[in-house]
Design a protein around this nucleic acid. Structure first.
Lengths: 126, 126
DNA sequence: CGGCATCCGTAGCGATACTG
DNA sequence: CAGTATCGCTACGGATGCCG
């Protein structure tokens, strides 16, 4: 899928367009911060500041940037409560939930192979 | 999991260490090039140059760098055939295969929501 | 509180070239 | 063919400050 090159055949124009779009989406989504945000949101809906506290080490800027990107792709929904001070909440949409399931898989995988990987690292670094 | 902060409680020292390690692994793995390599390898074993051709747009440098990283974490195995010219092949290890399954999930997800996402983008950009 | 703009350092990444 | 090293440049990402 995401890895095929454009061979130049005119018949493949649509497939190629779909592929490059897929690749674009993949590049958007396959980054540390985006995935951590998806994972943190999970079932619940969180405020900006709550996300900031939940995700260790993320900066104000990266959080907004990635939230915008996720919103643009329709993975999170942003609702602004017109109070003062403002209250902005984020939730996963249905597509976002779908992605979250696969991210859950990655987290599970990480836990399962923690020890294995740590050992491999030590071996490699020697 | 990967998102919890260190609360300072001494009882949680081990959990915290495990978490930060998990986070480290997650950061290694949750990047575009690493995931594309994992996905490209899939079932088969590929040579360096084959990977380079398979993955559109990856540079020589990024490929070696990520392959080293994946090897270090024990996700890919690197076998050198002492021929001339040299022939170096890469395969997914068992943990690597495990990760690949979740990446497959992400790719499937991308395909499923391609149209939805494209629409959302157009709506957002207006 | 949350968002946007600005400034600025660092490191990510590509291009090139040299070895076994 | 594959790997390592070096040199740049860009763009990512953090810090700060000002608005609604």
């Amino acid at each position: 899928m995401v890895t095929k090159q454009y061979t130049g055949s005119p018949d493949e124009a649509d497939l190629t367009r779909a592929d490059s779009l897929a690749r674009e989406i993949f590049s958007d989504v396959a980054n540390k911060w985006a995935l951590l945000i998806i994972e943190s949101l999970g079932e619940h809906t969180l405020r900006f500041s709550e996300l900031r506290n939940e995700i260790e080490g993320i900066s104000h800027k990266m959080l907004t940037q990635n939230l915008r990107m996720l919103e643009r792709n329709g993975l999170v929904e942003r609702t602004v409560h017109p109070t003062v001070p403002p209250r902005v909440e984020y939730t996963l949409t249905e597509p976002g939930q779908g992605l979250r399931e696969t991210v859950d898989g990655m987290c599970g995988w990480t836990r399962r192979y923690l020890g294995h990987i740590e050992a491999s690292r030590h071996h490699f670094d020697a």
